[in-house]
Write a protein that binds this DNA or RNA. Sequence first.
DNA 1: GATGAATGAGAATTCATTCAT
DNA 2: GATGAATGAATTCTCATTCAT
Lengths: 223, 223, 223, 223
Amino acid sequence: MLDVTTIDPLRDERALRADAQRNLTRILEAAAEVFAEAGAEASVAEIAERAGVGTATIFRRFPTKEDLLAAIVEQRVRGIADSAREAAGSKDPGKALRQFMVSAAAAYIGDRGYCDAAGTRVFAQPAVQELVDELVASLEQLLQRAKEAGEVREDVSAADITILLMAVAQAGLKVESVVPGAWHRYLDIVLDGLRPEGARPLSRKALTRKQLGAARAPAPHCR
Amino acid sequence: MLDVTTIDPLRDERALRADAQRNLTRILEAAAEVFAEAGAEASVAEIAERAGVGTATIFRRFPTKEDLLAAIVEQRVRGIADSAREAAGSKDPGKALRQFMVSAAAAYIGDRGYCDAAGTRVFAQPAVQELVDELVASLEQLLQRAKEAGEVREDVSAADITILLMAVAQAGLKVESVVPGAWHRYLDIVLDGLRPEGARPLSRKALTRKQLGAARAPAPHCR
Amino acid sequence: MLDVTTIDPLRDERALRADAQRNLTRILEAAAEVFAEAGAEASVAEIAERAGVGTATIFRRFPTKEDLLAAIVEQRVRGIADSAREAAGSKDPGKALRQFMVSAAAAYIGDRGYCDAAGTRVFAQPAVQELVDELVASLEQLLQRAKEAGEVREDVSAADITILLMAVAQAGLKVESVVPGAWHRYLDIVLDGLRPEGARPLSRKALTRKQLGAARAPAPHCR
Amino acid sequence: MLDVTTIDPLRDERALRADAQRNLTRILEAAAEVFAEAGAEASVAEIAERAGVGTATIFRRFPTKEDLLAAIVEQRVRGIADSAREAAGSKDPGKALRQFMVSAAAAYIGDRGYCDAAGTRVFAQPAVQELVDELVASLEQLLQRAKEAGEVREDVSAADITILLMAVAQAGLKVESVVPGAWHRYLDIVLDGLRPEGARPLSRKALTRKQLGAARAPAPHCR
DNA sequence: GATGAATGAGAATTCATTCAT
DNA sequence: GATGAATGAATTCTCATTCAT
């Protein structure tokens, strides 16, 4: 045993990290599942149980339940931001926008925790903010191109898209267990509302990026 | 006083009922306020305090916090249903629909408790169901006339309207404290999506009334 | 029963209050004992158990463990302040001061919680502050008369007395279980230090009342 | 590296010891700092972090947090004992006693951990006891000479001095953040109390050495 | 009928200490 | 030898609901 250790000191380190990483992964997986199913008010104990660790182990990695939720939200936003970046480079921007919105809404629908977290302090975390900014930037590119192609009305912004997505997702979530996928229908209607045909002037200004990112409510159900 | 009581038991009963009725009214008013401001997770104690009664008095009338919330939701839905009935008789169905949706969304936005309750067991209560049915019926009339007037696409249903309203309200609520009234913008877009111009076929069927009413999640934040 | 109730509506109220008062008394007694024995870091659970109530019952009366401790401290300070007021009116101020300091030190010695609380946020509570001010005022009277009688050096203040008492008590507490009452000896030495004979100039100014009352540390062991 | 290790095991051992010694030193330094600042309830994790080692490394050397605190206390007492030994040889015993008490009180004041540990099981550790005995022995010499010089009353003992120091330090600590150095004033008064002028008979016997060293309370804040 | 009191069942969070690598 | 990870046992505090008066 000593030999092995001596031969490759890194091994020891790697082993530890592997172990920790495995646990961390399990925690994140469990948290993602539990938050997705039960929403942000899920208890840490429930997550710990699903992960097969003690609650203290979770609090070692994430000083606060809110931090854990933020980590999950971060993953989710990262995925959406990636989709948006990909979509931004597409040849057919109208189609790409539609596809992006479908995939984003699908992601949101599956994640009650994410929906609960929207508009809370969780989104004020720098890491999340950064990803949101990235997402918005990609979306703006995509939107610009879609507008030039005549597929989208001129007066909508990237911030509008993110909020409308949230709207469809939240409402869709409510009926999801009764009619899975029903949200597609509502997204279709919203998408039609985004088209230039029959567009009527909007009565309010779009949110600025800062407004979009402003932390508002305390994190959900964290006392 | 004692004499009077003895002489006419009915009077006593009446007096008690008046008292009880007054208490009930105060409870409902307080609950409406508190739930609207703080959402469904508001504590019963807070409501009792605002109503100036003991918590036990509340539980005498409403066996469960959920039942109290349901009563409030009932009031809210009743108001919306009234609006819908009124709108259904309007001369200009397109305009009436728009006005109805604005007022309904405004009502939802101002009521966090209602938004929290949407899609939960609370909506499964018979009294609420009944009112929802009434609301949907009025909306169907209104919609039919708006379609005939060419103001609304043919393929949307009353259920769609209620869900889209919820969508706009929930998303609007998240940004309401940052940019009050921003939800008007999102409602505008949705309204444009409901118009016949540029309407594309919807990929899913509308929800039936039964599906719309099916209870799903447990009541929010009740342990 | 109705008759009785009707005759004297207060009875019902009194009964409730009597019940609550009894529990409150038990809580306060238990808290006084437990804090006195185990210090401020004693757990609320321990106090609840000794009082024969649930912890939630304690938290209903005292929103915070710190508030409970403050209530106990308040009682203690009130007792000391009463002693001081009485002593201030004595004929023999030198003897009265000595007796006061003995009784105060004895009170402190028996109360670890009080000693732990000294110099913490607990003493910043208005009710406690007020009593401390009263105590200091009485002490100043007493001191003035003792100085005039030539029993106390001119340069000491009431604040000095309270701090020296604390000093003797804290140190005395450490040896109390080994040699009960040993603190008398240390108090004797301090009392001799307060006499005019052989008094040497003090190198620092006395604390002002405000400085004496300034909240400093967070409450002990309250997380 | 492997070769060297194999060739000369002692070398390896020496190297390890040097390493271990360095770690031990860092742990002790960190613990001294942290305990001094935050008191005995400082967490082991904080000390480990400041020392740049893992917590397990600390527990390897010190089976218990209490043992670590004892080691720190030992250092502190050693320093005080050194001062006392030095003072005992001074030409002007009255002045030397005063200077010793000032420096000792200053040391205590700067060390919350030490103050927390006073009168607890920590002082029962043999190593600490031994140093306390040494301290007391030096103090007795010093006292004897000071008494002979007429600077100190006849009836005080070395144990009294150590306890009065503790008293001044503990009380001084409470006001230290408000009026730094205020403890000098209280020490002045105690010093005057130790002088022969106006000394009145003490009502209790001095503690014996054994009594001074008897362990009493459990170690502070260790669960 | 009404009320405030009481409480059991949690929830988040901390920490000394042990363990696997 | 050293380390960071893991955790059991506590701790403070909350709240829907029941009970005694």
